[in-house]
Amino acid sequence: MTAPLLLDAIADDARRIAALSRDMGRHVSIDPEMLLQRDIALQPPGLWSPNRHCRLVQARDGWMAVNLARQDDLASVAAWLECDDADAPWDAVIGLVKERATADLLERSILLGMPVSVVGEAPLAQASELHPATRPERALKVLDLSALWAGPLCGALLADAGLEVTKVQDPARPDPTAVATPVHHQRLNGRKSHVSMTLASSAVGAALDRCDVLITSARPHALARLGLTPDAVFDRHPQLIWVAITAHGFMGDNAMRVGFGDDTAAAGGLISRVDGAPSFLGDALADPLTGLRAAHLALRAIVEARAGLIDVALASSAADFARRAGLR
């Protein structure tokens, strides 16, 4: 059951979004409980996340969240822990992490590109530095290059607010939600226009020329290969709002870190305590909370006629909601 104070914090952001959308001539209504749902078989939260891909484990000097959702992560356990138990990765994690220091484990996981975090490590979210902008009289256009949950949810809420949102699907890297969670996918992307486009093609630049808001969920080095760097984008599109959603931040030392909804929720301290041990509160909570926060920040930038890069990290968004829910 979701913590009541967390639902209160979500409802508070929902009211802010409703007020901003009314200023734009629409009314966006958000059900806090529904915001956190997706059509997937789940187990009760505890040391294991409800989807059973992430586990809270105790290291020598603290608790960590280890997320082995991808085959690459399972295959990296032996190198991460310098062991031979490649055939039983979870046994190795549970048995060996307790002998190691969190700092060493975190450093090695980052080098290997694994979604691992220390519980409560994430700083609170910082305000983005935006500059004044001029908005066109027409309906604003959004280019949604994101995937999975947080970015598409941001786009869905912007569509509810009356923006024209185009969801880009790269045929080489399709968004897995359409197959894995079709009802959830429809809720996130059903109100958007859809185009199939290779992200490495010049068509992305042409599409960007026609949009007012850009949503991404890739790390900066991947976007840089597409020519999407802050300098290049804002030199050409100074009036653009770029919502950059990442695990631990688009700028700075953590920009290369990998993370998903459960491990970044733990990084933000969005967990409960049961007999002194941490416990997950829900399913990949950092994802919907980040999507909500990103939409709020984007709508506020539109209403206030501001532009620039809105850096929205899953971990720091979780930390912000954890603070507001009295969990840190």
Rank of each mutant, 00 (worst) to 15 (best):
L143C: 09
S109R: 04
S146R: 08
A255V: 01
G326R: 05
H248F: 15
H194V: 13
G269R: 04
I310S: 06
A41G: 11
E99K: 14
W149V: 07
D283F: 02
K98G: 05
N254W: 03
L226C: 08
G291M: 13
P174A: 10
P230S: 10
Q43F: 02
R26E: 12
V179I: 13
E129Y: 05
S109G: 02
V28F: 08
A78Q: 06
R300Y: 06
L158F: 04
A133T: 15
I241C: 14
S76H: 06
R210C: 14
S196V: 09
P230F: 06
G282F: 03
V233T: 07
P89T: 07
S279K: 08
V118E: 00
A294F: 10
R187L: 04
H194R: 13
V213K: 11
P174V: 11
D91E: 12
K141E: 14
G308N: 14
R22S: 13
I215C: 10
R328A: 12
R210H: 08
A318E: 01
V258I: 11
R22L: 14
D253Q: 14
V195Q: 12
R138T: 15
P174Y: 04
K98N: 05
L270I: 08
A298K: 09
R323W: 07
L153V: 05
G25T: 09
S193Q: 15
R306Q: 15
D31H: 00
R100L: 08
A247I: 08
L56N: 05
L140W: 13
S201P: 10
G155K: 02
R22F: 01
E137T: 12
A218G: 01
V57F: 03
V93L: 06
D104K: 09
L285Q: 06
G291P: 04
R324K: 06
D144M: 05
V168S: 00
L74P: 00
W90D: 09
M24G: 13
D13Y: 11
T181M: 13
R257K: 14
A133F: 13
M24Y: 10
N51A: 00
W48E: 00
L281M: 15
S21M: 03
G113Q: 04
D311A: 12
L105K: 00
D170G: 02
D311T: 05
R173Q: 14
P32S: 06
A92Q: 03
L281C: 03
D212V: 00
P238I: 10
F321I: 07
I30K: 07
G113M: 04
A207Y: 11
D170L: 05
V233R: 06
E137F: 07
A75C: 12
A319D: 01
L199M: 15
A172L: 12
D253S: 07
L226D: 01
